[in-house]
Computed example of a mutant assay.
Amino acid sequence: MAELTLEPTSQQGLAAVAALMRRAFPQAGKYTEAYLNWLYFQNPVGPALAFDVREGERVVSHGAGILQRLVLHGRPVLGALMLNTATDADRQGRGLFSQVVTAVIEEGRRRGVAALIGVANQNSVGPYVKRLGFHDVRGLDAFVSVAPERIDVSRALAHADLRRDWDDAALAWRMGNPEGRLKVVAVGADALVVEGASTAPLVAARAVIPRRGLSAPEAPRSRLRPAVSLALAPAGASRRGVSLTVPDRLRPSPLRLIYFNLEDPADRLDPDRILFSFLDFDAF
Rank of each mutant, 00 (worst) to 15 (best):
L4W: 13
L4Y: 10
T5H: 04
E7S: 13
P8V: 15
S10E: 15
S10V: 07
Q11F: 03
Q12V: 03
V17Y: 02
V17E: 08
V17W: 03
A18F: 06
L20T: 03
R22L: 10
R23V: 15
F25S: 09
Q27S: 15
T32Q: 07
A34M: 06
Y35A: 15
F41G: 05
Q42H: 11
N43F: 05
P44I: 00
G56N: 09
E57R: 05
E57L: 05
H62A: 01
A64K: 03
L67P: 06
L70K: 08
P76S: 02
A80Q: 05
N84C: 15
N84S: 14
R94C: 10
G95H: 06
S98A: 15
G108K: 02
R109M: 06
R110F: 03
V113G: 13
A114E: 09
A115W: 10
I117T: 14
G118D: 06
A120N: 08
G126T: 13
K130L: 06
L140C: 12
L140P: 06
D141G: 01
A147D: 04
E149T: 03
D152T: 10
V153P: 03
A160N: 09
L162T: 00
R164F: 04
D165Y: 03
D168I: 07
A172C: 08
W173T: 06
G180P: 00
R181I: 12
V184H: 00
V185D: 00
V185S: 01
V185H: 00
A186T: 07
V187E: 15
G188S: 04
S198I: 12
T199S: 14
V203G: 01
V203P: 00
A207W: 03
I209G: 04
R211W: 01
G213F: 02
P217W: 04
S222N: 05
L224D: 08
R225D: 04
P226K: 13
S229L: 02
A233C: 07
A235Y: 11
V242S: 05
T245H: 10
V246S: 13
P247Q: 08
R251I: 09
I258H: 13
E263S: 06
P265H: 07
D267A: 05
D272F: 15
I274N: 01
F284T: 04
F284S: 11
